[in-house]
């Protein structure tokens, strides 16, 4: 991680100590035990700070505008998720001017020390316990599929569905990282969202991906067919799956003129 950016963050966050979690294309992610305004000594919760640093290559006016609008966009998405009852980190505080979002931390440490993303959990089971296809795994995959189904039923698109962007904890699976999220009612966009996850599962969990993917889809279907959202949902599901087949055939990208 580039020190300059971490130093910038330290300055902007004023006295708050944090650990570095990751550096993505757009943002740095930190973890802290400190709550910005409601610290309870008994509380052992931790929080995630997402920081969108200035990009030196961008014209300052473009940069300010993008940082602000992206940060706001992500907060809006998270708020809508919370309202819709779709499990995701909840907003604690924001600083749009500096591109900072403070949010709840979801997840726990697996026995091998890694964060409990779906990816790490599946890898842990595979390597350490050798039980990749247990009932528990099936149940979790179905739950994850159901969660994504709920997301799409609300016409929300994650935009970057990978097994690293799904967090597990006692309360169940949760979605994280909404930097590429958007809204759409189109079956095409939902199909692409699913396809990205399918491809991610195939490349990250190659040995059992076909089982995982079928369980994910089962959960996704259940969200549409159990009627908890609307009676028309089943129709949408059929349309989305049809589109998914098209997307699989042509690859995610359209055919372009040279």
């Amino acid at each position: 991680m580039t020190d300059r950016l971490v130093d910038e963050a330290k300055l902007l966050l004023r006295n708050v100590s944090f650990q570095i979690v990751s550096q993505g294309a757009e943002a740095l992610v930190f973890k802290t035990n400190i709550h910005p305004y409601f610290n309870d000594d008994q509380d052992e919760s931790s929080y995630i700070i997402k920081y969108r640093p200035r990009k030196p290559y961008r014209h300052p006016k473009i940069d300010k505008s993008i940082t602000k609008s992206r940060t706001i966009g992500e907060v809006k998405f998270m708020f809508k998720l919370a309202k819709a009852g779709i499990r995701a980190p909840r907003v604690v505080s924001t600083d749009y001017f500096n591109g900072i979002i403070w949010m709840e931390h979801i997840g726990y440490s697996l026995p091998d020390g890694k964060e409990s993303t779906l990816k790490n959990w599946l890898w842990y089971l595979e390597k350490v316990r050798g039980e990749s296809l247990s009932e528990e795994v099936q149940r979790i995959c179905v739950e994850v599929g159901y969660l994504i189904g709920d997301l799409h039923l609300n016409d929300m698109i994650h935009g970057d569905l990978t097994s690293s962007n799904i967090m597990l904890d006692k309360k169940g699976p949760a979605l994280i990282d909404f930097g590429l999220s958007s809204y759409s009612a189109l079956p095409e966009d939902k199909a692409v969202d699913l396809y990205v996850l399918e491809r991610a599962m195939n490349s990250t969990h190659a040995d059992y991906a076909s089982e995982y993917n079928s369980w994910l889809l089962k959960g996704y279907e259940k969200a549409h067919s159990d009627g908890h959202y609307s009676k028309q949902a089943n129709k949408s599901f059929v349309e989305i799956i049809k589109r998914l087949e098209d997307v699989r055939l042509r690859g995610r990208k359209r055919s372009m003129i040279g």
Partner: peptide
Amino acid sequence: QETLFSMLVEITERALAH
């Protein structure tokens, strides 16, 4: 130029991170 090139650099950076 500033707008188009910022966008190009951004999607390149996304690929780099990936």
